[in-house]
Simulated assay, not measured.
Amino acid sequence: MSAMVMGPAMPNLVLARANVRAAGTRLATVRAPQQPARSAAHLRLTARGRAVLWVLAAAVAAVVTLFASQASADGPVGAQEVERHVVQSGETLWQIAESVAAPSQDVRDVVLDLVRLNELPDAGLMAGQVIVVPVD
């Protein structure tokens, strides 16, 4: 049998060659795998790479500054002025909405606003019911 060399140790390789020569057989040289020249921990940037990173950082900072300067908060919303309205017999929410709607407003939108404002389950009203309507 021939001797087998394992591992990257050089003295073992020399010793194995000597043993094989004495036995009169040939030995194939086994080489250890090459180690990478640099590990990821020792990564270095070139001057060009550093310049590119600085330009990218400046561009990101400029974009963030541009969008941040356009952001603005609205002030507190003023309370809507309302008055109480007692529903008369036969009066509908549509009729009430027509009476308080501005000329350019859609009456359907005013009906929805009245339903939301009074927290009504639907658009049905009962005589004597008190609702609030916005004042013009």
Rank of each mutant, 00 (worst) to 15 (best):
M1L: 13
S2F: 05
A3S: 08
M6T: 13
M6S: 15
G7Y: 03
P8W: 07
P8G: 08
P8D: 14
A9W: 04
P11V: 04
N12A: 11
V14I: 01
N19Y: 10
V20E: 08
V20T: 14
R21K: 08
T25V: 02
T25K: 00
T25Y: 00
L27Y: 03
T29W: 05
V30I: 05
R31H: 08
P33M: 07
Q34E: 09
Q35R: 09
P36R: 01
H42V: 07
H42P: 10
H42T: 10
L45P: 03
L45V: 05
T46Y: 13
R48N: 09
G49R: 04
G49C: 00
A51L: 03
A51I: 00
V52Y: 10
L53W: 13
W54C: 12
W54G: 12
V55K: 07
A61H: 09
V64L: 11
T65I: 00
T65L: 08
Q70T: 10
A71P: 01
D74Q: 09
P76F: 05
G78C: 14
Q80K: 02
E81S: 14
E83F: 14
E83H: 06
R84W: 05
H85C: 12
E91P: 06
T92E: 05
A97S: 14
A97Q: 09
A97W: 11
V100I: 00
A101V: 10
D106F: 06
R108Y: 14
V110M: 15
L112D: 11
D113L: 07
L114S: 06
E119W: 01
E119I: 03
D122E: 06
L125N: 07
G128Q: 00
V130G: 09
V133M: 04
